[in-house]
Write a protein that binds this DNA or RNA. Sequence first.
DNA 1: ATCCGTTATAAAATTAATTTATAATAGGCA
DNA 2: TGCCTATTATAAATTAATTTTATAACGGAT
Lengths: 294, 294
Amino acid sequence: MNTKDLAYFDQLIKQKNFSKVAASFGVTQPTITMAVKRLETEFNTKLFLRDRAHHELIVTDSGQQLAVHAQSILGELDIAHQELDHLTQQRIILGLPPIIENHYFPRVAARLQELGMLENIQTLEGGSVWLRNALRDGQADIALLGSAEPLSYQTLLAEEFDRKPFNIFVSAQHPLAKRKRIYFSELKGEKFVLFTSSFVHNTAFNKLTRRNHFRPDVVFRAADTHVIMNLVAENVGVSFLTDIVDQHRHDVVRLELLDDEQPAFITSIVTRTSHVLTGTQQRVLKVLRETLEE
Amino acid sequence: MNTKDLAYFDQLIKQKNFSKVAASFGVTQPTITMAVKRLETEFNTKLFLRDRAHHELIVTDSGQQLAVHAQSILGELDIAHQELDHLTQQRIILGLPPIIENHYFPRVAARLQELGMLENIQTLEGGSVWLRNALRDGQADIALLGSAEPLSYQTLLAEEFDRKPFNIFVSAQHPLAKRKRIYFSELKGEKFVLFTSSFVHNTAFNKLTRRNHFRPDVVFRAADTHVIMNLVAENVGVSFLTDIVDQHRHDVVRLELLDDEQPAFITSIVTRTSHVLTGTQQRVLKVLRETLEE
DNA sequence: ATCCGTTATAAAATTAATTTATAATAGGCA
DNA sequence: TGCCTATTATAAATTAATTTTATAACGGAT
């Protein structure tokens, strides 16, 4: 069976129009008719009901079912292409969310350079959620991901390498600045300056506000830690971050949280379960583990 | 790309010999050479190193990686064939382990018959572990599985419908027969008659012996409940079963366990996540749920 | 009644896969 | 060394599969 037929079929399920599918693949319309016929013969079933009366194309139960498998097969094929591309180019695509890239990656990069392996690494940046999908879909080979819960996905293998509590950052002039530790509930009524993008921080933060029954007054969201820190220093609001960011400022004070069962910023090395590690990749992983898990 | 090429490739990975693979598919040897060439072109990589010197075929890293995907694609295709077969024959293959079939299925069957849906059901019998794989591989569509822990698998969807504690069955003449409840540790030194096949019972039993630090003296194992019960009645040994079996005997006494955190015989309705439920299948599932979860 | 947008069909053309026949390579062994 | 064997590769011929071209069929809309 030709996978091209599955691709035609997959599009037909989506577009529900033979001629348009043909056009989108740059082939003629009878090609699609024939492809569907071949699949119907191969699987010994009707895949579509051609209801010309109400000019719509009805997908049969079999069609629905095959569509799921077609997608899965085409996806797998796509991953195979990407993986083999990376392999032959001796290139490992390493997914890194910005915060992790800033805090953890410099160490790793230094070590990889010592060993002459840095040239084989190409980083791919994006939020943790986006990278998780990129990894699943074969765009990345390894990723360092942050999460509020231990990662566990069908097709991914996660190995936790660090776990940091979240802290509260306040301006040195802020009344709470004299404290060392506080309960999250004491922040009721505060103004907050938070991350805009990071899924993980928001998940953890929302969990805490919900648990403490208050709606936070978020006055600003920024994608960059320094922007947030500057705003905190100016006492525009307080922030909620891990201490992997920027501890060397005298105008900002870090407060630990005293709450039980605090969420943590968990960092993991993640790979696809279907990915076969080459020698080089195993060596890179070893370096990642040794550098990160100390 | 033709999936036939992947099938040739998959076998070549396993057999490492072009001529033999050709023979096993009933084609000539150059066909395999050409198929590999097509894949190498398609993925722009070398898949094998033909080391004629030590006459062995070396699989490259790319080859290893593609092999994983090839298997996955061929497996998916196989599942698709089976599922569509069942669909067009309006047939639902229901996997049932013997104990569940005996205890739970009669009720279900009666209800399905009332609704005229029994004829669409075909049962597939086997142990829980075997059935789990059969379900994953598309041989069955729905299964009722027993387990000692809640089921959780990558590609399967489990829905618990019952949970029964395990009991101890002793002969009416046995010293413990006067008791109603005992601790598992009191069985140290007893002879046991157990199930031979059932993974679930053994898992639970082993957990308890390990926790209570003794090596059980298993004098006999049988695949059939009645055989076990007869042996227990004759005081050949005591047994470890759920009370879904055979309570109407006067020569055998059932004892409850007093231990904390006892393992349970958990029964679940299990389906493949990739399976699209047709109307009929949804109706059958509804009957299963209604009949079983009461 | 004719036109439009659809999908199907059949023959021809094109492209792809397989076979046949044979070459090439290297080890084993007399 | 030279011949035999077990391999895999190559090239031309054959066969099979896919796609195009051209046209039909269908049913709704104008």
